[in-house]
Design a protein around this nucleic acid. Structure first.
Length: 343
DNA sequence: AAGGCCTACAACCGCATTCCG
DNA sequence: ACGGAATGCGGTTGTAGGCCT
């Protein structure tokens, strides 16, 4: 029992839109809004069906859409979201501001799918294709697959957080973000999402003798694409900073053992006595360093560096082996997310 | 120069879902 | 609760423009 197509009427135009038609549609919507799409074409003087008008508006004429080349960041996001959500283009589009689902879908089909295939990754499953074991391509693909899995977990948590936050903010906290996260930046975001983001961002060294410098090839441990393009620009922990102003990430303070960084030696000493927080400064960063505008996530295990976050970047020094530190923090953060944000 | 092929992307189509009387 | 209309969504097609031979 199918419905008759809306464009069956004789005389309705199909195919590419002319600039005159665009003008008519734009002018009408700007003045009256679109209201009922079915009724719109006649009112606007267009020989088109409502569906066609709607599509033209949504995918092309709407003022809040960004056109032009996708940035590498956007591409990376699409790949990651696709790994998580599959072909749910409209959902993906909601997480890519100013891009339409159609545009994203086209970009995926014409560029990204091919790119992944070239890399030896099945664009449907985001898993490596069967390759000769031990080949460079196979190793790369396996690594990428692992990265994609890790990223999926993160994105899943993030998507859920976003949804929950939407619900919360649309109800009781709509006009009062501060009630929930008094120190959070505006527009307020859910807490904790940035922890993983900054962890992706890479590391820098506060002091040469303590730090292991990670090469610029170090990117997200989980992303399928190159992430940090400016590792060398990541700010390091400041020396002797006196202020402890609130940063864009300090809403993370609401999270369990995580602690906002300190601004003074005295405060730092106080925090050293904080139950459950083990050896703060001295473990990994020279105690003469004063951390301002930063967040320190203390390592609860001996031998691992703290995770220090400053204005959205990981700036901690690394004691011991980098891989071990990286794995340690990956497992801590993943466990945290799994524990707190499972469906 | 002309024809064929390829690529990118706008637009269409049909099914699914939501809305509303 | 039901059914039809409206809207949303994703797969697919059509076509313009660029490139190659």
């Amino acid at each position: 029992m199918g419905r008759s197509p809306c464009c069956d009427k004789v005389g309705l135009k199909k195919g590419p839109w002319t600039s005159e038609e665009d003008q008519k549609l734009l002018a009408f919507i700007q003045e009256h809004g679109h209201g009922s799409w079915r009724a719109l074409p006649e009112k606007a003087g267009l020989q088109r069906c409502g569906k066609s008008c709607r599509l033209r508006w949504i995918n092309y004429l709407r003022p809040d859409i960004k056109r032009g080349k996708f940035t590498s960041q956007e591409e990376q996001t699409i790949i990651q979201l696709h790994a998580l959500l599959g072909n749910r283009w409209s959902t993906i589009a909601t997480l890519l501001p100013m891009r339409t689902d159609n545009e994203i879908k086209n970009h995926w089909n014409t560029h990204l799918k091919k790119r992944l295939t070239k890399m030896g990754i099945d664009p449907k499953t985001h898993k490596p294709n069967n390759q000769v074991r031990g080949s460079a391509q196979s190793k790369d693909a396996a690594n990428l697959s692992h990265m994609a899995q890790w990223e999926s977990a993160r994105l899943e948590a993030e998507a859920r957080m976003a949804r929950e936050w939407k619900i919360v903010s649309s109800s009781q906290f709509q006009n009062n973000d501060e009630a929930l996260w008094p120190l959070a930046p505006k527009p307020c975001r859910p807490p904790c999402l940035d922890v993983l983001k900054v962890w992706q961002g890479g590391w820098a060294k506060p002091k040469q003798e303590h730090a292991t410098i990670f090469s610029s090839s170090f990117n997200s441990p989980n992303s399928t694409l190159k992430l940090s393009e400016n590792i060398s620009n990541i700010p390091s922990v400041g020396y002797g900073e006196e202020h402890a102003s609130i940063t864009s990430i300090n809403c993370i303070q609401n999270l369990g053992p995580f602690e906002v960084g300190t601004s003074s030696k005295e405060e730092n000493i106080q925090n050293d006595n904080h139950p459950g927080i083990k050896g703060r400064m001295e473990d990994s960063v020279d105690s003469t360093n004063y951390i301002a505008d930063s967040l320190r996530v203390p390592s609860l295990m001996e031998g691992f560096t703290d995770l220090v976050v400053d204005s959205g970047n990981v700036v901690g020094s690394c004691i011991g082996d980098f891989e071990e530190n990286k794995n340690y923090w990956n497992s801590v953060l993943t466990e945290y997310y799994e524990h707190n944000f499972k469906y």
